[in-house]
Amino acid sequence: MFITWALIQNALELGVIYAIIALALFLTYSMLNVCDLSTDGCYTLGAAVGAMVAISGHPILALFAAMGAGICSGFINAFLQTRMKVESMLAGIIVNTGLYTVNILVMGKSTLSMNDTTTIFTMMKDLLKDTPFAGAYKLVVALLFAVVIALFLLLFLGTRLGLSIRATGDNIAMVKSSSINPVLTTTVGLCIGGAMTGLAGCLLGEYQKSVDINMGTGMVTVALASLIIGETLVGKKSVAVRIIGVIFGSCLYRVIVAIALRFNLPASALKLVSAVIVAVAISMPAIKEIILLRKTKLAAMRKHKEMAVWDQEQRGGSASC
């Protein structure tokens, strides 16, 4: 069979883990309106820290350590943006560059293998040994985390702090006159985003049982592609629907990738595919506008041609008089 269940299941597992990063970007990019470009490094940082702690024998602690590392990264990013007034994109790039060295320092070398390490995945495998879900233990872990995080995000965005974060991204002038401290909201938003990205990195490292220093390259584009697919699918709805949309978008993206791979597309082509998806999706409003303008212009030109003919006739008539 061309598309097997195993293929889809694999895509879903990855999609659900990547959805956590897409949700982090949903918080920072869609809600807070900050372009957080430190995602690549933060993701690898989470994977590296998580792997080191897991290898030393603390699989649960690894998850929290990865989140803690992500929070630190998000905090530095936020500090540069708010207190030091560095442009948000530049701050992300600076943090991202610095994290490369930090990640090497954490890992001690450029790759780590976790083949014999106890991780949250192997723990779940043991737990589900004789149940019908034994074959889907990876998906169970991924779904568990994604659902918990989605619920947390949904509840959080309804609190005063969550609403303030949304308002910060929507209208900064209003925020200042509503007793909201934009420095605080930006910092909290980026820290939570960092924690989610770090956790996703940790999960993915444990999922594929290896961590590579370059595993995060291009991650921000991939996550943005998932986010944009999700947001486009559901449109401007309530936050709950949009969160579900983002998770769905991430899974859909992975399924598209899986199918593309079946067509013997080299794995290296995927980055280009992601880049094209993001570029096209973000430029969609502008493209629509151009098409609309051309249509109006064409219709007008046709009409004007008739008018010009009519005008000529009138002139001809008057000249012969």
Partner: peptide, 22 residues
Amino acid sequence: MKGTAPNMTIEENLAIAYLRAS
């Protein structure tokens, strides 16, 4: 346009104004 957040609902805008007293 300065006093309200356009992409948030009326209810959410009021909630921000109300919760500032908590």
